[in-house]
Design a protein around this nucleic acid. Sequence first.
DNA 1: GGTCTTGATCGATTTTCCCGATCAATAGCC
DNA 2: GGCTATTGATCGGGAAAATCGATCAAGACC
Lengths: 281, 281
Amino acid sequence: MQIDLLDTFLDLAETRSFHRTAERLRITQSTVSARVAALEQAVGSRLFDRSRAGTDLTPEGKRFEPHARALRHEWNEAQRRIKIPQGAQHLLRLGIQNDLAAVYLGDWVAEFRAAFPETAFYIEPDYSNQMCADLLTGILDFAVMFSPKPHPDLHFDSVGEVTYRMISTETPRLAEVRSDRFVFAHFSPAFEEMHRQTTPDLAGAPVSVGQSGSVVSLLTAMGGSGYVLAKTASDLIAGGRFMAVKDAPDLRQPVFAAIHIRHRTLPLHRRLTQLVARHFR
Amino acid sequence: MQIDLLDTFLDLAETRSFHRTAERLRITQSTVSARVAALEQAVGSRLFDRSRAGTDLTPEGKRFEPHARALRHEWNEAQRRIKIPQGAQHLLRLGIQNDLAAVYLGDWVAEFRAAFPETAFYIEPDYSNQMCADLLTGILDFAVMFSPKPHPDLHFDSVGEVTYRMISTETPRLAEVRSDRFVFAHFSPAFEEMHRQTTPDLAGAPVSVGQSGSVVSLLTAMGGSGYVLAKTASDLIAGGRFMAVKDAPDLRQPVFAAIHIRHRTLPLHRRLTQLVARHFR
DNA sequence: GGTCTTGATCGATTTTCCCGATCAATAGCC
DNA sequence: GGCTATTGATCGGGAAAATCGATCAAGACC
C-alpha cells in the first residue's frame, strides 16, 4: 500500500472517471488502471464498478473511503509533527483546551518561548478526551485541559481555575434573565453540572453550545445572556453593548496540566506546569 | 510510503538491531537498511541513530512511532471493515454503547439477524464521542449510545431508557450506605448529574468508574455499594451475595439511536431503530 | 592484536511501475 | 443501421525500484 494508491483512489472516487483522474494526477490512464488494480489486490476487494457508462464505488469502496481519508490524513500529520523547525533544538507538542486557546494561548506561548528559547512548539487546541488519547499514544507531550480522564498512564496536576461570568445585552439582574434568551454552555461536564446547580431555571435554555467563543458569537448576533470567560466578559462590557449580570454567581472551572506518566519527573514538564499555573494565581 | 516500510520501522524500533529485524522479517539486512533509508526520505527526517554500539530512535523517530502505529492500525482496520463475509449481501457496521453491549448485544444481534438474514453485521462497542466521530466519517452506519453529541450531520432518535439500580453487599437501606464503600459511576455526563442530584452525599465516593461492568467487578472483589444495570442487578441479587438498596431511587439513562443525516430516511435504518426501541418498552 | 558485531555500500538480479499504443464495448448522434 | 467519441482493460517495452548476497569499515570485546 502506498500513498500514491490512496491518492489515486480518492481522486477516482471523486471524478468517477479514469481519464479525468489520469489528467488531474498527471499520469496516464493505464497507470490509474494499474494503481486501482493494485489497491484492490492489497485490500482484497473490488473497489470500483467499471462500466462503459461510468465508474462508481462498490459497497466495499464506499466503506473503504473514510479509511483512505484517515490514512492520508494520518500520514500528513505524521510528516508535519515530527520535524523540528530549523534552528530549534527540541520540539514540544502541546495540546490546549479549546476554550482556553483563544484567550490564553498568546501569553503562554510568549512565556514558553522566553523560558525555552531553543525549543520549537507545536500547538493544537483540542478537547480533553482527544488530548488524553494523544498523550497516551505519544502524539502530544503536554496538555492543558478542563476534564482529566483518569488513566493509569496519565498524570494530572491542578494548575488553578478559570472564571466564567454571566453577561447580557438585556439586563444586569439575574432575576430578569429570560431562559428563552439564554445561551446555555456545556464547556465540560463539571461546568455543566455547576451551571445547573446554581441556576437550574436557565438550564432548559433552547440554545446550548460548548465553546466560549461560540457563546460570544451567538450573543453578539442575536443578543441575550450567557456565561463567557471573565477576560472576554470584561472586553465585551467595555465595548458597550453588554453588561455584567452582577448577582449571577461566577462559575469556576478547574484547569489541569496533563502529561504521560513516564515524563512526570522531567524538569521541562515541571517548568511548563509552573508557567501555566502562574496564570491562574 | 508503504506498509512494509512501517513494519520495518516498528520492528527496528523494537529490536534496535538491523540484523535481528532482518531475521524476524525474513529479509536481508541490506533490505532493512534500504527500507529505513526509504522511509527516512519519505518523512524527510532521520529516524534512527546508527552507531557501532547499537541503534536507537532519534527524537524525530520517537515522535514518528505513534503515527506509524496509527497508520498500521488504520490499515488493518480498513481491511477488516470493508469486506462482506461470504454469503451475505450487505454489511452493516454498528456501534454500541460500551455499557449496553455486555447486556443487550446478544439479544439485539439475534433480532437483527432474524430481521435481515442477508446482512452481515460488524459490531463494535465504544463510547458516545467516538461513535459520533465514526458516524460522521462514515466508518459506522448506525450506533446506539447514551450521549448524543449535537452535530448538523447527525440524526438522533430517542429509543427509550435503561435503568440503573443500586445494589450493596452490606445493607438494603439507603441511609446505611457508606460513601467510603460506594462506587460512584460516571456512565455519561447526564447520568453523573442525576446521580449527584439524587444522592449528593455519595458523590464524593473515593472510587469512580465509567462502566457498569467495572462497577460489578469492583463490588464483587471488594464489596460495597453502587449502581449497576437493572438486569445485572437482578442476576447479582439472585446470586445471593448482593441485595437491592430498596429505597435508593432508580436512575434512568436515556438511550439514543444515531445515524448520519444522509441515511435518515433509509427503511433499513428505521427498522433498526424500531428493533432497538422495542427493548426499552 | 585478533575477532566479532555493527550498519553501510556495491553490483547483479528480480520485480514493480509506468507509459504509449491498442482493443473491445458502449453511448450518443445522424 | 452506421459513424464517432468515450469508456476502461490490456499488452509490450523500457525505466525505476526493491531485494539479495557479498564485501567493507569502524567500533566493541577479549
